[in-house]
Amino acid sequence: MITLWHYLAVSAALFGIGLVGFLTRRNLITMFLCAEMMLQAVAVNFVAFARHHGNLHGQVFVLFILAVAACEAGVALALILMLYRRGKTLDASAWQTLRELGVPPAVDTDPLPVETRGEEPRLADAGVRPEPAGEEAARV
């Protein structure tokens, strides 16, 4: 039999994962999604309690959470858009001018890995007869 406590435990774990993402990830959009995930965890909590108490008040609260999440999504995405327009980056750490005077800026020391990508396939230029290559030449 699945009890209230099972749901509470799962929602706590979900909340923890969301919190970790919010604290560590630097992409503003990912941070926003993690915050939404924390809201989902809280919603599960409410619904489980509604079921437990045998009334619908918990579900009503979840409806309000949905409303607030919608508001949050609108405003947060607008803010992210503004920040992106100003800085041309989604990095939350790019905005650190609020620091105390005289404190050196946080700098990422490790270089980013260089992505090595093979040559992308290209079509031959139009109007030029393709040069046969390899054994194709033998067949021609």
Partner: peptide, 20 residues
Amino acid sequence: GDLARPVQNGLVQFYALSMA
């Protein structure tokens, strides 16, 4: 204050982490 100042490094996520 100089000793405590580096805490105020302007990174919002650092602040959130401290809070959590």
